[in-house]
Design a protein around this nucleic acid. Sequence first.
DNA 1: CCGTATCCCCGAGGATACTG
DNA 2: CAGTATCCTCGGGGATACGG
Lengths: 128, 128
Amino acid sequence: MSHGKLVSIPFVFEQPCPIRDVLDRIGDQWSLLLLEVLEHGTMRFSEIERAITDISKQMLSKTLRRLEEDGFVKRTLYPEVPPRVEYELTDLGRSFLTPMKTLIAWANENHQAICEARSEYGAKNGGR
Amino acid sequence: MSHGKLVSIPFVFEQPCPIRDVLDRIGDQWSLLLLEVLEHGTMRFSEIERAITDISKQMLSKTLRRLEEDGFVKRTLYPEVPPRVEYELTDLGRSFLTPMKTLIAWANENHQAICEARSEYGAKNGGR
DNA sequence: CCGTATCCCCGAGGATACTG
DNA sequence: CAGTATCCTCGGGGATACGG
């Protein structure tokens, strides 16, 4: 392999690195799940909360705000009493669904293989 | 959970969830970068270390072992003196490059938009 | 209803030193 | 050369209580 070698490696050394930047936001525990849920349309805070039973209000709030900051999600406040807030995907957010679904599809197709690899590895190194 | 509505939501509630499972491994700081680097062929431990200047030996070791566990990477030990160890992608690992590149492409194309969204958000909420 | 503030825990990950 | 072992820090994220 061309020992010109690491010249071609990548973009990962860019400052700031777009992939790191995206991954740091999307790689957390809730972002992908929220995007998936919001794909189905506009939802209120409490609707999302009920949809994802095991998220805390704090993390829901934080994650939504980050997604809003990054332009994935639009937040609309209706100053009624009691207040109503609705969240929906932006165009940018919707455009992200494509790579996301590619990733999800791969995960579904290969989950089995990964599990097998793990137990195989576990078998070989079980004796310690 | 069937609210009529959220019935179609997803797979994220599967136990165990394939996406969570994949993301927990791939969402860390180094895995994607290692896969990217190993795409270029078989490499020794120290070669990888030099390629990614800012990774610690410990994290390199851990991340490689996890990738090996999950069947993304094959590790070959040559019991010479001094020892030589080579790492390369497996078929599973190579198959993952496809969704990964889709994600990377999206990140590159939309990084600008994300940055703009951030500074716009920062502008609106800067006064606090 | 829609959040924020506070406290706390735990694991990712860096730095450094040691081993086969 | 290719790792482990140890120590430490920092931030994600849960639980709970409070505020507009």
